[in-house]
Design a protein around this nucleic acid. Structure first.
Length: 581
RNA sequence: GGUCCCAUAGCUCAACUGGAUAGAGCACCUGCCUUCUAAGCAGGGGGUUGCAGGUUCGAGUCCUGCUGGGAUCACCA
């Protein structure tokens, strides 16, 4: 199903033959031999770097290897030509029938076309969003949510066993702030006059929470000290905020497999056990930190602390795990949390963070390295900021606390599909401009609509064919005769379709879902190009008057395009549109 | 000052992780609507990939040092 993998296997077989007949020496490393689409289509259909990669070890000239390899490869009937070019590239051309064979494959697999076994069922944990449960999600969280969710789907599609996870920071002191803020709203619901000092959350979203609390407990907490209500309201408010956050995520179509409560680590002795274990390894110790390199803070004072030896694993300084009052820092439960993840048997951990957390990457990697003894990789993906615009002008957010642009604001305005696609049209580590007007623009400048429009056009042809009484069911199209598909513009589309399984694996390998968005744009472009050529070259139209077999063959090609668009959008979490009138 | 990220066409961004003559879109110029959706297509001009070295068959990509921009910087999570 992956033509590039097929030809790669063919090249390796040919190289092995060259070894056994003495053309090449016996002990060679083929792991760097690649078969890729060439940058320039004029060079051919596929190119291999085998000759250049092996030249040094084989003590031969690249071109000599390439010449010999070319002879082997052209013996295979899938290869129509193999030309040596440049410093030793071997450019291959494949028989059109080979490319066209991808069409029934795609139609047969449907939305599973491109699904890969690459992951081999390995368990991967993707942690994303993990916003503090103190309010609704805002735009910054939105990008992380979309990225993490699409990445999780991508890995699932690539054959990994994926868990989508959200850790609730419900143990820290910010929850006390939340509880006090809710208490004020509770008093307010009772008709009390209240003011909101600095350091509490003044947002309107807590008003209904205070009201609901009043409905639940009546006047039980009025004029009572914190000792009476703090713990109760902490729990109540955290639950309310998580309901809010789950509802926000649902607006985007994001559904977590697991919500992990940080607080659950506190009462169970898990933190203590985990740190004790590290202490036995000499990785937790009492010590004094050096002042930071470079400019020391004005109020620097050296003090003895309980430290985790993250410098053993590449961090810049060791990190404190306990405060001077004896309570844990945020870092201690984080260590225990990742220990918990590892105990659940994950082969790989992925963590999605906002760019403002870049300073935590080294210590997180240090934790995972230390706890797993370097057996489990952690990949941290940082999502850069989203800059909001409205009609080209920066969208002003009021600095008054509580009036930020929320995820709900964005999704209500442009819809979940547009939000998701646009958020994935940039690499995660590049800043993203999000213009409320431009993302709704219905033109090719807007990749969302360009891709959707291609799919809509294809479905339009299918409808028209059906209306004309033609059988265009997938079952029929799978067996359609594609021998009339000979034009370069048509074969270009078939080649692009054939790239999909390979692209998917590359995107999964590098944890980069944005590659799918760019690929779909390219595929749509090849399709639109073909469509338009049909205006002048009537042979290229998909519906050929009175020639049912030919029409079905051509329609099978574009139906395969539609299949890939659906599969690709499915991974991104975007619903394909069948009609756009 | 330390650490991390970024710098590619006038603008917004790609470049399959070291491959060939660095590609798209926007903007600009020239064409294409009695046609399966012109919400589109074809063609043209536009580049010392921030600067200086290095590694090798080969560098936008890797290494070193600069310049400029962003983020972050000892018990707040």
């Amino acid at each position: 199903m992956n033509l590039f993998a097929d030809i790669h296997a063919l090249v390796l077989t040919a190289l092995a033959q060259m070894q056994s007949d003495g053309t090449l020496p016996a002990d060679l490393d083929f792991s760097n031999v690649a078969v890729e689409p060439p940058r320039d289509a004029l060079h051919g259909d596929m190119a291999t770097n085998a000759a250049m990669v092996l030249a040094k070890a084989a003590k031969m000239k690249p071109r000599d290897i390439a010449d010999a390899l070319a002879i082997k490869l052209t013996a295979d009937d899938r290869i129509t030509s193999a030309d040596v070019a440049g410093p030793g590239f071997l450019n291959l051309r494949l028989a059109p029938a080979v490319w066209l064979s991808i069409i029934p494959d795609a139609l047969q697999a449907g939305n599973d076309f491109g699904r890969s076994q690459m992951g081999g069922g390995k368990k991967v944990n993707v942690e994303y969003v993990s916003a503090n449960p103190t309010g609704p999600l805002h735009v910054g969280h939105t990008r992380g949510a979309v990225f993490g969710d699409a990445l999780a789907s991508l890995l699932d599609f690539a054959g990994y066993n994926v868990t989508r996870e959200y850790v609730i920071n419900d143990g820290g002191s910010q929850i006390n702030t939340l509880a006090r803020s809710v208490y004020l709203r509770y008093l307010e619901a009772h008709g009390r006059e209240v003011s909101f000092p600095d350091g509490v959350y003044p947002g309107d979203y807590l008003i209904p929470v205070g009201q609901a609390l009043k409905d639940k407990v009546g006047d039980a907490y009025i004029d009572q000290p914190e000792a009476v209500w703090l713990e109760e309201i902490r729990n109540y408010a955290t639950d309310a905020m998580m309901d809010l956050i789950r509802a926000d995520l649902a607006l985007l179509g994001v559904k977590m497999d697991r919500f992990f409560s940080e607080k659950s680590l506190y009462s169970t002795g898990k933190i203590e056990a985990c740190l004790e274990m590290l202490k036995k390894k000499g990785l937790v110790y009492q010590g004094v930190l050096e002042p930071p390199k470079g400019k020391a803070p004005d109020d620097w004072e050296s003090r003895e602390q309980t430290l985790f030896k993250s410098t053993d694993y590449g961090d810049d300084i060791d990190r404190a795990v306990m405060k001077s009052d004896g309570s844990w820092t945020y870092f201690a439960p984080d260590i225990a949390y990742h220990y918990d993840k590892l105990q659940r048997g994950y082969d790989e951990l992925i963590l999605i963070l906002g760019a403002d957390h870049s300073g935590y990457v080294k210590r997180m990697k240090a934790i995972v390295s230390a706890l797993s003894e370097n057996t489990v990789p952690l990949d941290v993906k940082l999502c850069q900021l989203v800059k909001l615009y409205k009609n080209g002008q920066p969208f002003k957010m009021s600095k008054r606390a509580g009036t930020f642009v929320t995820l709900k604001d964005v999704v209500d305005r442009v819809g979940p599909d547009v939000t998701r696609f646009v958020m994935l049209t940039r690499k995660n580590d590049a800043p993203l401009d999000f213009d409320f007007d431009k993302v709704l623009d219905q033109s090719k400048e807007n990749p969302v609509f360009y891709v959707q429009y291609a799919n809509a056009r294809i479905n339009s042809v299918l409808r028209k064919a059906k209306k004309a009484g033609m059988d265009v069911s997938d079952a029929t199209l799978i067996t359609a005769d594609s021998s009339h598909i000979t034009h370069d513009a048509e074969l270009a589309v078939a080649r692009k379709i054939a790239e999909w399984p390979r692209l998917l694996e590359l995107a999964a390998k590098h944890n980069e879902p944005h590659r799918i968005a760019f690929y779909l744009y390219d595929l749509a472009s090849d399709f639109h190009s073909l469509w338009n050529r049909g205006k002048e070259e009537t042979d290229l139209r998909f519906l050929q008057e009175g020639e049912i077999a030919t029409s079905q063959g051509k329609i099978s090609l574009i139906r395969a395009v539609s299949v890939v668009i659906s599969a690709g959008l499915g991974i991104l979490g975007v619903t394909p549109m069948e009609e756009m009138r």
